[in-house]
Design a protein around this nucleic acid. Sequence first.
DNA 1: TTTGGGACCTGGAGGC
DNA 2: TGCCTCCAGGTCCCAA
Length: 316
Amino acid sequence: MPELPEVEVVRRGLQKWVQGRTVTGVEVVDPRSIRRHTHGTEDFRSQLTGARIGAVVRRGKFLWLPLLHDSGELQDSEAAGAGSDVALMAHLGMSGQLLMQDPDQPDEKHLKVRIAFEPRADAPDELRFVDQRIFGGLSVTSLVPTSDGLPGGLGDQAPLIAAEAAHIARDPLDPSFSVEAFMAALKRRRTGLKRALLDQSLISGIGNIYADEALWASKLHYARPTEKLRPAEVAELLQNVRAVMTASLEVGGTTFDSLYVNVNGASGYFERSLNVYGREGQPCYRCQDNGLLTLIRREPFMNRSSYLCPVCQRKR
DNA sequence: TTTGGGACCTGGAGGC
DNA sequence: TGCCTCCAGGTCCCAA
C-alpha cells in the first residue's frame, strides 16, 4: 500500500526516466482511472500528447508532473517546475503502480492507462498506470500559486502547486514543513491523535501503517486527545514519524503483497522492520526487551485496524 | 465550522 | 466446487 516513502521512491524513479521527455501517445484502457479528469478521455489525451515533462513533484501522497507545451532543450528552471500552468496529476490510492516498461512487454492484468514517450535508447519508452482497486487515478490539473509562496512540494522550485493537492498540508519530509504550524493546528483540533495524523489537511503523507509505527515508537495511544498533548510529546512523535519514513525510504518502501512496487517493478523491504503494524498476537519487542511478554493488539478504528501494545501505549 | 461515518473498489481468504 | 461474506485502506462526500 503506497504511503509517503513508497510514493517518494516512485517519484525518484520517474524523475530519472521521464523528466524532459515528450509524450507521443496516450491510451486510456479503463476510463475509471481518469474519473477525476472531468473533461473526459479525449481531452485527457489531447492535453498530454505532445507535452514535455518538466519535473516530478510530490506533496504527501500526491504526485504531479508539470507539462510544457513548447519545444527545445529542457532548461534548469523548467526542470524545477516553472514555465508550466498545467500538470499530470497522479495518486496511487491503495494499489496504484506507475511502471516504466518497453512497449513490447506484455500488458499487466490491471493496466489502466498507457503513456508513450519518444524513443530513447537508454530508457523504457512507456509509462503504465496499473491499479487493481481503482482508488488511485490520473488527471490533468492546473497549477496554482502556493499560499505561502514556497515551492509546492519536493522536487519543485517554483511556488506552484497542483490545484488538486492545494488543500493538503505539507508532509514531514518537506523542507518547508513547519513544526510550529503543525503543533498549533493539532492544539486547535479536538479529536483523537491517530485520526489527526491521518488527516491530510493537518499533515500529509501519513497512512495507517506509519501512523501505527510512529505511535508505537512514541509510546502514545491512538485515541489520545490532541488538545491535551504536550509539545515535547508532539515533537517526539514528529521525530519518530520522520525516522520511520526515512528508514522505509532507504530500503525502498513497505511491501505486503504485489500492490506496491517501484517504477521498475521491484518491491520494498521495510515490512521486515515493522514493530507493531500487522503483528496482532505477537510479542511487543520493547516489552520483550524489558522482560515482559505483552501481545500486540488489533483494535477496530475508522473502519480499519489499529495495532498497539496495551502496556507501553496506555490510554491515559 | 468542525467532526465522524460511510461509500467507493477489487481480489484473496475463510466459512458453509 | 461454488457461493457468500468479510477484510484491506486513501480520499471524498455528506450528515450531525
